Simulated scan of single mutants.
Amino acid sequence: MSKRTAVIVISLLAIAGFVAAALLYKGNQSVPEVAAPVKANSALVRFNAPSFGPAKAPVTIVEFFDPSCESCRAFYPIVKQMMAKHPEDLRLVLRYKRLHVGSEEAIRLLEAARKQGVFVPVLEAVLESQPLWHDDATAAAAWEAAAQAGLDVEKAREQAMAPDITAAIERDAEDAQALGVKGTPTFFVNGKPLPSFGAQPLYDLIKSEINLSR
Rank of each mutant, 00 (worst) to 15 (best):
S2Q: 05
S2F: 11
S2P: 13
R4V: 10
I15M: 15
Y25S: 10
K26F: 13
K26P: 10
G27R: 15
Q29P: 12
S30K: 07
S30I: 04
V31E: 07
P32N: 13
E33V: 09
A35L: 07
A36P: 08
P37N: 09
V38S: 15
K39Y: 12
N41L: 03
S42C: 04
V45S: 09
A49W: 05
F52E: 11
A55N: 03
P58H: 04
P58D: 00
V59K: 03
T60A: 11
D66Q: 01
E70P: 02
C72V: 00
A74H: 14
A74Y: 04
I78D: 05
I78S: 12
K80I: 13
Q81R: 05
M83I: 14
A84Q: 04
K85N: 02
L92W: 10
V93Q: 06
V93H: 05
L94M: 11
R95T: 09
R95M: 15
L99V: 15
S103G: 02
L109S: 12
G117Q: 13
V118M: 02
V118Q: 00
F119I: 02
F119N: 02
V120A: 05
P121C: 00
V122C: 07
L127K: 00
E128I: 08
S129E: 12
S129N: 09
A137V: 05
T138A: 07
A139G: 03
A142H: 02
A142T: 03
E144R: 11
Q148S: 13
A149P: 15
A149F: 07
G150W: 11
Q159E: 14
A167K: 04
D172P: 09
A178T: 14
T184L: 08
F188V: 06
V189F: 01
V189W: 01
N190T: 02
G191H: 04
S196W: 02
S196H: 13
G198V: 03
P201Y: 12
E209G: 03
N211L: 06
N211P: 01
S213C: 04
